[in-house]
Amino acid sequence: MLELGLFYTSATVALVATVFAVTRYNVAHALIYLIISLLASAVIFYLVGAPFAAILEILIYAGAIMVLFVFVIMMLNLGSPGDGVEHQWLQPGMWIFPSILCLVLLAEIVYMLSSGDRMLQGKMIGPKQVGIDLFGPYVLAVEIASMLLLAGLVGAYHLGRKYLIDAREES
């Protein structure tokens, strides 16, 4: 019963945060809502017995990819002071809502940590099982994903290299 309550709370947080992430005019605000949404879905993953997926959601999406997004925002937005976007930032009211959502999540996580493993269903899939599955029945998917990443890496290397050559020719 309690697990269901936790599930619906974090699901609501995730949904509301995602809606806000879509509807905000300001990119930075939208990003913050997206981060909250990701954290909420991590809680849901944990609740349904997939702690590994939950922590990957935090580690990779919230902790790395969104940081890069914020990084790009930092490079773009602050360049033009006085435009309407920046003006909107200064409204303190914008930030009350995400903080409330975040606090709800924090309270939930603290509660979960303090009361041991709480699962919606009895079955829990640990990190070991995920690993065995990934390199067992799903090995093809892993290989395809790794090839995709390799292609991205080669592409990035190529782009960087071309830039270097150009820079050398100019100088």
């Binding site: 702690p51 590994f52 939950a54 922590i55 990957l56 935090i58 580690l59 919230a62 902790g63 790395a64 940081v67 640990g126 990190p127």
Partner: peptide, 15 residues
């Protein structure tokens, strides 16, 4: 059972 990853996740959120 994800203790180590939890630690890494929290340090990455600290950014």
């Amino acid at each position: 059972n994800i203790g180590l990853l939890f630690f890494l996740g929290m340090t990455s959120l600290a950014v």
